[in-house]
């Protein structure tokens, strides 16, 4: 049984798949988006007694529906209304990736930003102040991560669990989304 659905969104090559695999392990299934030839990956994981379904959205640079992938990602966020969007962003190309983040935030969906590939950003000598960034984005959680080395993912799991917990408490009657 699925208690909550969360969506993974991000630019192509931002490391979304790595995060997806790390979260769901072997519990994933691959299909197609209804009526589309684009691959749809879903998976599950349990945390603190919650069953959480993860949907991996196609990698896109924007949500402006210029392409099939963008259309799919946008429709899912706006119409299927996942409880939470996990926005995986490439820290080494922050400016390009944050454009999508702004569009996701504009939909009004609760969002967590995972700043992935912090090692690459470090190699370029970039220092990113995640605290400041969180403030700049209105206080949403910003996690720094190196998904390929499994860094920052525990923090992500914890934040998802906290969120789900809070959501459960806010809506004691229901809980299924």
């Amino acid at each position: 049984m699925t208690d909550f659905t969360i969506a993974l969104a991000g630019n192509p090559n931002a490391g979304k798949s790595t995060v997806f695999n790390a979260l769901t392990g072997s519990r994933q299934y691959v299909g197609n988006w209804p009526g589309k030839t684009v691959e749809k990956k879903e998976g599950n994981f349990k945390y603190n007694g919650f069953n959480i379904k993860v949907v991996d959205l196609p990698g896109t640079y924007s949500l402006s529906a210029y392409s099939l992938e963008e259309q799919i990602a946008r429709d899912f966020i706006v119409k299927e209304k996942p409880a939470l969007v996990v926005n995986v962003a490439d820290a080494a190309n922050l400016e390009r990736n944050l454009y999508l983040t702004m569009q996701i935030l504009e939909t009004g969906t609760p969002t967590v930003v995972v700043l992935n590939m912090m090692d690459m950003a470090g190699h370029r000598g970039f220092q990113i102040d995640t605290q400041k960034m969180s403030e700049g984005l209105g206080g949403i959680p910003v996690i720094s991560a190196i998904a390929s080395r499994n860094q920052g993912l525990d923090e992500l799991r914890q934040i998802i669990a906290d969120f789900v917990q809070a959501k459960q408490e806010a809506q004691p009657a229901g809980g299924i989304l």
Binding site: S62, Y66, N93, L94, E95
Partner: peptide
């Protein structure tokens, strides 16, 4: 003062 990859995105905007 724009990141190269972000500039590419903006260029694609103008191409569209």
């Amino acid at each position: 003062g724009i990141e190269r990859s972000a500039l590419e995105g903006m260029i694609q905007f103008w191409v569209r």
